[in-house]
Design a protein around this nucleic acid. Structure first.
Lengths: 220, 220
DNA sequence: TCCCTTCGATCTACAGTGTAGGTAATCGAC
DNA sequence: GTCGATTACCTACACTGTAGATCGAAGGGA
């Protein structure tokens, strides 16, 4: 009655893993991670909740799937580039991919992904490091140092929410007052820079420091 | 019958915010974050679930509370130390605090905390940066770069779980085989170092790079 | 043509969740 | 003694993830 049972007629497949993941991602974009439930997702797809389980292994696997969609959006670095250009391009590509879906980004940043999708960028970073003369163990250390920085900054950036940027918003003013009245001298002195975050500048600063250090080590 | 109603007699308060947070933390330590529910926590405290709401604002506030307990465990750095010693001490203190409760650490690493507890370490880092001649905006950038690195490494470290360390475990062997058979040349070459993580060495490496860079900037 | 396996969508059901709203018992202050 | 505030308990509601069974169409052989 409510909806016909059994397999849908003909080749008109109602569901597919891709369709589910796409809809899930836009659901996260619109309502946030906490709003994701199998039932709500199914409702948006016009489908019974349990049907999702024919294409996805469960809620956790669904979230992993979204994470991989995000990771797949990182463009490959230009082929002829040197170490610094390659790492910079990948770092900016990663950041852009996360900022394109800020509410879904924690799925990438907080989960240990072991898929092929996650391995491609690793290869793109390791290759120039090895070519620059890094022994494999140091190359891996350098890779993880940069990855850690990326994860950390983006975590901060993405949790801040879009209302953190403006310098004259109500929130910023209140934060400024709180910091100045904290009684901590250094915090008070730096309060204007703590109250608002110039994420672009922070990202550039940290990335420059790290790439400088790696570049210096490559020279040795 | 099941339990007497109303306020408990005399000064024998059954519940308190501290007791709740303590029990919540050991619950997380024992069973992980997903296992935390108001009902289970109440059961362990021998109390009705709704009673918790008299001391804690809701589940989210409870988790924030646990995060602050973790943060409060970071020891203050030695007072007379210079920039590098101070930042190193705080970084190691932060790491030790997180590794002391690996399953609860994501609460600190993934939440934006705005409490006084979170501000104390910030002061401890900013003070020597400013004293070393950093202008406030650069000091804040340096602070966040180090914080981002800390968040990122600890995220990786804490999610890996305790079974990631050993070199001859089954998981390590399987990972090694996967990496070598990935078809990616750089990944294959560095596979032995990708399959197992020496977290201590990684942490030391990244921290050294960052502190070197900041030290060099302070000299200018 | 019939039969039979396979597959995907549906339905039911269950144990568990966070918490709003209401009630009763005890306290400190007057 | 009276009164408001505090605190523990109870009920109830809407919602979650998903195991298990069921049904109907598609496709392959005979």
């Amino acid at each position: 009655m409510t909806g016909r049972r059994g397999r849908p007629p003909k080749n008109a497949d109602v569901l597919s893993r891709e369709r589910i993941l796409r809809e899930a991602l836009t659901l996260v974009d619109e309502e946030g991670l906490d709003a994701v439930s199998m039932r709500k997702l199914a409702r948006r797809l016009g489908v019974d909740p349990m049907s999702l389980y024919n294409h996805v292994d469960g809620k956790d696997a669904l979230l992993d799937g979204i994470a991989e969609v995000l990771l797949a959006a990182i463009p490959a670095p230009p082929p002829g580039a040197d170490l610094r250009e390659t790492m910079s391009a990948l770092a900016h590509g990663f950041r852009a991919a996360m900022l394109g879906h800020p509410r879904a980004a924690p799925l990438v940043l907080t989960r240990r992904l072991a898929s092929m999708t996650a391995l491609a960028p690793v290869e793109s970073v390791l290759a120039p490091l090895l070519a620059a003369g890094f022994p494999p163990d140091r190359a891996v250390h350098g890779l993880w140092a940069v990855v850690a920085f990326l994860i950390g900054t983006l975590m901060r950036e993405v949790e801040a929410g879009p209302t953190f940027g403006g310098t004259d918003t109500d929130g910023a003013r209140r934060r400024l007052a709180d910091l100045e009245g904290s009684g901590l001298p250094a915090v008070s002195a730096a309060a204007p820079f703590l109250a608002v975050c110039d994420h672009d500048a922070e990202f550039a600063f940290g990335l420059r420091i790290l790439l400088d250090a790696l570049g210096a080590m490559a020279g040795r």
